[in-house]
Design a protein around this nucleic acid. Structure first.
Length: 441
RNA sequence: GCGGGGAUAGCCUAGCGGUAGGGCGACGGCCUGCUAAGCCGUUAUCCGAAAGGAUUCGAGGGUUCGAAUCCCUCUCCCCGCGCCA
């Protein structure tokens, strides 16, 4: 949520922000107008309440002295009617103002490139040596801006979709029977590979001072609204029927809400949490995309980085969580590029967002595996999380980033590390997985 | 699920129809050669340029001129009993 004072004092900043996001700048003026009406009526209301409080005190004193107070009593009754009338106006106007305010997206960081959609995202860093099927070379050179090492391969690797079904490492057909499309039964070596990935990512973060947390997988409306934006409720969030509970789409949600309504001591910052949880997503609006396999699914597991920090440190920590995620993909020997998400593709909550996209040799393109956001004070405001500072309370900044989303990372491993008659397991996973190869032939 | 006890500002606690009091902690100041002690002040939210005012006793209703206090509904926590992976 935005600071109402920012809208009052610098409305042109917020209008500019709306334009960059291809949204209507007039929303700002609607809020300003409602805010003005609210404040006017609030002043009237408070004057009436003050009058009433003084009368009530008079009655109290008169009764103590044994005097009659029936005329004051009637006056208060009359005041109560006026108060109720104005209260209704104040509440109604404030409700309208806040409902618009809650829909306002975060102010974009100055580093966010302007753009209409995902085609305008800006790749700026490249790592690793990609295996590129000859037919994909033009696309690869375009998407890697020619700044990435590669080797040409003469055969396209098996797609993860074909491979997992053929060698019984997952069963999406039967999952479709019992749960619908975009679900899967994970089987055999992939089950352990998933656990190995989670342990590897968790240990990587614990070493860097993150506290491991397994959060609740459901949240109340209040907590969920604070952690995410309203459009998510239609597009991604599952609701539990007849309960005030929503399935989390990422452990970012319960980790953001973890300190809801709290005041954090300044000296305990930064708070660094490594969340581990399943993620549930409706994937509405993704019809026809990645319909097979386990790349885009309604349920997957993820290890997530989440940080609460002092506002002046969030830029530093944004780079840090990105670096942590990059280290993981480097150790997994998965070639990737990092992109700076543009204003049209960034979503309402983030102020700045980086994605890591791994080169997928079977698909012949870069695919998103990590998303790292600096949310600034947007979630903290919505969740009423403050920090007690030397000179008063303030809102902390929050940041989140994927460490490992298991399904997508397994897809990346299957496509990149196919080697003869199996899949090579990258070094850091071996001690968790127990072997260095998944034999498939 | 049943019975009993709770929820008061960052924390603890009093108040149980008549302007929410005390303690701890934190911060600022005074006093000290320094530290401690001691003393004074500040320590939730909102409106207001300020003076000031309004709100706030788990949440929501009700009774009353007036509710932390009385009544109703709900949430959460603690102690027993029951059920249970």
């Amino acid at each position: 949520m935005l600071d109402i004072n920012l809208i009052r004092n610098n409305p042109e900043v917020v209008r500019e922000n709306q334009k960059k996001r291809n949204l209507d700048p007039a929303d700002v003026d609607k809020i300003l107008e409602l805010d003005r009406i609210w404040r006017e009526n609030l002043q009237v209301l408070e004057r009436l309440r003050n009058l009433k409080n003084r009368k009530v005190l008079e009655i109290s004193l008169k009764l103590k002295k044994g005097e009659d107070a029936s005329s004051e009593r009637d006056e208060v009754k009359k005041l109560n009617d006026d108060i109720e009338r104005v209260e209704n106006i104040v509440e109604e106007v404030k409700r309208k103002r806040d409902s618009l305010l809650w829909k306002m997206p975060n102010i974009l960081d100055e580093d966010v490139p302007y753009g209409k959609d995902e085609n305008d995202n800006v790749p700026f860093r490249f790592w690793g040596r990609a295996k590129v099927f000859r037919e994909d070379l033009d696309n690869f050179l375009r998407d890697s801006k020619g700044s990435m090492e590669y080797e040409i391969i003469e055969d396209r690797p098996l797609s993860h979709t074909d491979l997992i079904e053929k060698y019984d490492l997952a069963d999406t057909l039967r999952a479709g029977k019992v749960a619908g499309s975009r679900f899967y039964y994970l089987k055999r070596d992939l089950v352990k590979l998933e656990l190995a990935l989670e342990m590897f990512a968790l240990d990587h973060l614990v070493e860097k001072g993150f506290i491991p947390v397994e959060p609740p997988f459901m949240l109340t409306r209040r907590a969920m609204e604070g952690a995410t934006d309203l459009s998510s409720f239609e597009e991604t969030i599952y609701k539990v029927e007849n309960e005030d509970l929503y399935l989390i789409a990422t452990s970012e949600h319960p980790l953001a809400a973890y300190h809801m309504d709290e005041i954090i001591e300044e000296n305990s910052l930064p708070l660094k949490y490594a969340g581990i949880s399943p993620c549930f997503r409706k994937e509405a609006g993704a019809h026809g995309k990645d319909t097979k396999g386990i790349f885009r699914v309604h349920q997957f597991n993820k290890v997530e980085q989440f940080i609460y920090c002092h506002p002046e440190e969030s830029r530093k920590f944004h780079e840090e969580i990105l670096r942590n995620a990059e280290e993981i993909y480097q150790k997994l020997e998965l070639p990737y590029r990092v992109i700076n998400i543009c204003s049209g593709d960034i979503g309402n909550v983030a102020s700045k967002k980086y994605d890591i996209e791994v080169w997928m040799p079977a698909q012949g393109k870069f695919r998103e595996v990590v998303s790292a956001s600096n949310v600034k004070d947007y979630q903290a405001r919505r969740l009423n999380i403050r920090v007690r500072g030397r000179y008063g309370n303030y809102y902390p900044h929050t940041l989140n980033s994927t460490a490992v989303a298991t399904t997508r990372t397994m897809v990346a491993i299957i496509e990149n590390h196919q080697d003869g008659d199996g899949i090579r397991i990258p070094d850091p996973l071996v001690k968790y997985f127990g072997k260095d190869f998944i034999k498939i032939k």
